[in-house]
Design a protein around this nucleic acid. Sequence first.
RNA 1: GCCCCCAUGGUCUAGCGGCCUAGGACGUCACCCUUUCAAGGUGAAGAUCGCGGGUUCGAAUCCCGCUGGGGGUACCA
Length: 517
Amino acid sequence: MTDFHSPDARAAAALPLDLAEVRVRFAPSPTGSLHIGGSRLVMYNVLFAHGQARRAGKGGKFILRIEDTDQKRFVEGSAEGLMDGLAWLGLEWDEGPDIGGPYAPYVQSERQHHYREAADQLLANGHAYRCFCTPERLQRVRDDQVKRNLPPGYDRHCRNLGADEIQAKLDAGETFVVRILMPLEGETRFVDLLRGEIVFQNDKIEDLVLLKSDGYPTYHLAVVVDDHEMDITHVTRGPEWIPTAPIHVQLYEALGYEMPIFAHMPLILSPNGGKLSKRDGSAALADFRERGYLPEALLNYLALLGWSLDGKTEFFTMADLLEHFTIERVSAAPSTFDRDKLDWLNQQWINHHLTVEDLAVRCLPFLIAAGTIEEGPHDATHPTYGQVLVAAGLLKDRIRHLTEAPDLMSYFLADELHPYDSALLMPKRVEPAAALGMLKAFREVLPEIDLASHDATEARLRALADELGVKAGQLFMPIRVAATGRTQSPGLFDTLAAIGQDRVARRLDAAIELLEG
RNA sequence: GCCCCCAUGGUCUAGCGGCCUAGGACGUCACCCUUUCAAGGUGAAGAUCGCGGGUUCGAAUCCCGCUGGGGGUACCA
């Protein structure tokens, strides 16, 4: 049997020699927002198909399919939101509900007859049976089992109904579901790409429902049928599907389908334990977008959460990932979501991998939303772009999230300063009178200084500190606060230059008034 | 309860039987740079590789058990 401890062996198993094209799919149900874990799964799929497979000289396609077989949980607009999120991340699909493809339709509710045919085939060849049990009876059975401390599950009540009994119920118009007829003996095994062989005892597996009474298939029937019909070569999905994988394996065999390669990807855990969920602040991709994360940083972080190239390389662009990702290096162990590291990566991306122009443009929507600047196009043609660009240049290595832009840039972009505490004007160990003196002294020489010149401003201010007999820092702080309304800012001379002669003068006057009043 | 998966510092990870006195990164702390805050630089603390048995001349690496964590247990996906 394959030695899955060897990376080479896993690599070989991932891309069998006779495989011409990798076809992987992401098949979400349109029941809510796209989870961060789903986003990572899509990325791994894309990297595997478009990266690893193509590098190996094979074809590689990533398919998007909507699994809307549960009418009750359907949420309007969720499929659109999902595609929106993936597009934002820059993850593209080759076939899907919106762009079509050779295997259309890519929406399960439009593929009904396939499932019904498969169910009929299973019914005919004895791998499935009709079950007429009512939901009430099933609930009763379960309650009873729980009460008696038995493992809850369907008691296979309808498994051995006679042909005439079945006919009678059908004639009477009783509704039914179709259940898989699991073998009661033996075992079902399959190879998971990340874990090696997994074995299940057949008698421990339930006769799960394949076709619901409303005629819709359950996930189990639908995935198997669609994955087969869409020629999916690698079934990638979350680890929560491992327990029902034997059902799928049985179905592949019973239907005479060729077995795909299974790869159950790892789970993303919450720092509080358990699956990462809404309760952990945010688990939805859209939340990260709103909170000012760069898609590049998120992708970078997600790639590293469960995968590594060499344990040392930290920065990856999508292009890097396409060049280096291999699915067999994805860890089977679940990993905990670490907000701190994501934040660090986001800041690193802003500080070192984004151009100032790019940063400025990305800040625009956040500045507009906050009302810091006027409505306008989200690009360099925005009327205030020039000022935003200057501010972005100064704040580039101080911004962690784009959402901070409105606050950090406010004193560059707005004419009026937010009210601030006059105490800020007086640094520690500086008397109020001294602070006032310094501000007045600066105000007096301001007209002689060309703020646009960093060097001239610095020379004059340092000289002024000497004249006043104080340390440079003691003089700079009151000026900084007067000009910006806060104690933290980019370098003082650049900051003054960006704010401009007139506004600096006005803000100085206001500060002096504040101290005198 | 039953079934299944996983297990290297707080977190993400490297490691594929000797190169490991276990490497990198986040976080933490200290120092340097410095007009503040960042960024950057240097350094430190932090892991008896979950525990116990094997196999082997030799194990973080292979095997078994245990423990811990997680997942599943629907006419949801």
